[in-house]
Write a protein that binds this DNA or RNA. Structure first.
Length: 494
RNA sequence: GGCCUUUUCGUCUAUCGGUUAGGACAUUGGAUUCUCAUUCCAAGAAGACGGGUUCGACUCCCGUAGAGGCUACCA
């Protein structure tokens, strides 16, 4: 009787700080796997280490994931049939479950003091042995243990590993992995304060919450056999395990704060789009069946699969993220882009010497759209649209194949022409008539357009002169061209 | 040190024993062009190494090397 298995995956973060790029990938893959199999995605908070807990971490995690479009079906904020979803609220559950293990001798109380343990480890290291618990308390009888408890001795509960044999585990990405039982440490399941360790709590919760596919980082591979042994000690059915490969930095090392931005929040504030981040992270260890590399979240929810995942670590390549971000910015409608970009211009708008209309804003943002890699660049890129006259070196006005004298005359010709220009002040009209003017003058196009553009923008790189002039309007355009002539006059005069 | 994972262009990757080893980013060159960007075209660029298995290996096996992870009463 093989009824279709319920698919349930979970994200189980520790509330120890902001969402890291690595965590995002874990979250994304879990979410996509769940959705692609029409399953549920659950949030469970693993807060069994009070020392490392950071206040507000859960809220900020939820904020970022919501922004990215990664949503849960159950969790501490939503409730559900498998709660509580915060481990420190489940302590009675762990106490109850550990008793089973104690009863069938798969776990035992250890009364060794931390001092003895460190001493033991130092000794082992000195003798070039693998540091491991020496199982000093493993054979304590129940009576002996009870006596020590009565005497007020504190204890932890350790998992009793098999003394010999092979433990074979199965990872969906790597296949079978064999471990020698004798290499396994009797690690701590319940700490002296009665709180479980990750190793115990996650197994118990994954089982009780009926998780079908456990996704977690590759760093858990070494403790994988211990987890499997725990399932077996309980007689529980194993979920599928998917250990996600790590994400490395440019130099092949661990992603860290020193190498640049690792927090998703940082990317968000710089102006990376959730679409780009999602698309980018999805390809860190996954590939679709075709050569398609642009995927929306919705498409990924359909296409994602374990079969497309790899097992080797991936390097985080900012260049590719930038490309994708630019790509998604270019795809965006002007209205949407304005909404997203406005926060980066609030100061410019507030300090501008004239009123900035929404129409004007939309126009200048559209001009920069194809140049933007991250939204935050808009502030610098459009600065000249928010001032009366932009500042620049006189030399910048001179085209590479020209000189100051010619530049001055050409600008004057343009100024004279535009002053009496009577056509519609649009990009198209300006372009055709000014190009005609240049042809009539018999000059080189660049000798007119370069200085005109610099006069209007004050920048080495910018959109073209006609489109900028069209947005700026006749009055300001003329003012800036005349201003440029002035600057050249001052230069030659001094 | 021990254990585990991993290894195709600079980067992300495709290939599920037989391909001129494909795509994308990046790079270089070109077209468009006043600049930058966009767009388009083109080029260069890879199976870590050594053994097997096989008619045939990037693909399977073994070894070596590199890289990474774990080795806590942290996750």
């Amino acid at each position: 009787m093989s009824e279709p298995e319920k698919v349930r995956l979970r994200l189980a973060p520790s509330p120890t700080g902001f969402l890291h790029i690595g965590n995002l990938r874990t979250a994304l893959f879990g979410y996509l796997l769940a959705k692609s199999m029409h399953g549920e995605f659950i949030l469970r908070i693993e807060d069994t280490d009070e020392k490392r807990e950071v206040e507000g971490a859960v809220d900020s995690l939820l904020n970022v994931l919501t922004w990215l479009g990664i949503n849960f079906d159950e969790g501490p904020h939503l409730g559900g049939d498998y709660g509580p979803y915060i481990q420190t609220r489940r302590l009675d559950i762990y106490q109850k479950e550990i008793q089973t293990l104690l009863d069938n001798r798969k776990a035992y109380r250890c009364f060794c003091t931390p001092e003895r343990l460190t001493e033991m480890r130092e000794e082992q290291q000195k003798n070039k042995q693998a540091p491991r618990y020496d199982r000093h308390c493993r054979n304590l009888s129940e009576d002996e243990a009870q006596a020590k408890i009565k005497a007020g001795e504190s204890f932890v509960i350790r998992q009793a590993m098999p003394l010999d044999g092979v433990v074979e585990v199965y990872d969906e990405l790597r296949g079978a992995i064999k471990f020698q039982a004798e290499d396994l440490d009797d690690h701590v399941l319940i700490k002296a304060n009665g709180v479980p360790t990750y190793q115990f709590a996650s197994v118990v919760d994954d089982h009780l919450m009926e998780i079908s596919h456990v996704t977690r980082g590759e760093e858990w591979l070494p403790s994988f056999p211990k987890n499997i042994l725990l399932y077996q000690a309980f007689g529980w059915i194993l979920p599928k395990f998917i250990h996600l490969p790590l994400i490395l930095n440019k130099t092949g090392g661990k992603l860290s704060k020193r190498q640049g931005d690792v927090f998703v929040e940082d990317y968000k504030t710089k102006g990376y789009l959730s679409e780009a981040l999602i698309n980018f992270c999805a390809f860190l260890g996954w590939h679709g069946k075709t050569d398609q590399e642009i995927f929306s979240l919705e498409e990924l929810e359909k296409e994602f699969s374990i079969a497309g995942m790899g097992a080797s670590p991936a390097v985080f390549d900012l260049e590719k993220l930038n490309y994708l971000n630019g790509y998604y910015i270019r795809q965006m409608s002007p209205e949407n882009l304005v909404d997203l970009v406005k926060p980066y211009l609030t100061e410019a708008i507030a300090t501008a010497p004239f009123n900035i209309s929404d129409e004007y804003l939309t126009k200048i943002i559209s001009l920069e759209q194809e140049r933007l890699k991250v939204l935050g660049e808009i502030t610098q890129a459009t600065a000249y649209f928010f001032v009366d006259q932009s500042e620049y070196e006189a030399q910048l006005l001179v085209w590479k194949k020209s000189d100051a004298e010619k530049t001055k005359t050409n600008l004057q010709t343009l100024a004279d022409y535009l002053a009496v220009y009577s056509g519609d002040w649009t990009k198209e009209n300006l372009e055709s008539s000014i190009k005609q003017l240049i042809a009539d003058q018999g000059g080189q196009v660049g000798d007119y357009l370069w200085p005109m553009r610099v006069a209007l923008t004050g920048r080495q790189f910018s959109p073209g002169p006609f489109e900028v002039a069209a947005v700026l309007g006749k009055e300001i355009t003329l003012k800036r061209i005349k201003g440029a002539i002035n600057i050249l006059n001052l230069e030659s005069g001094s």
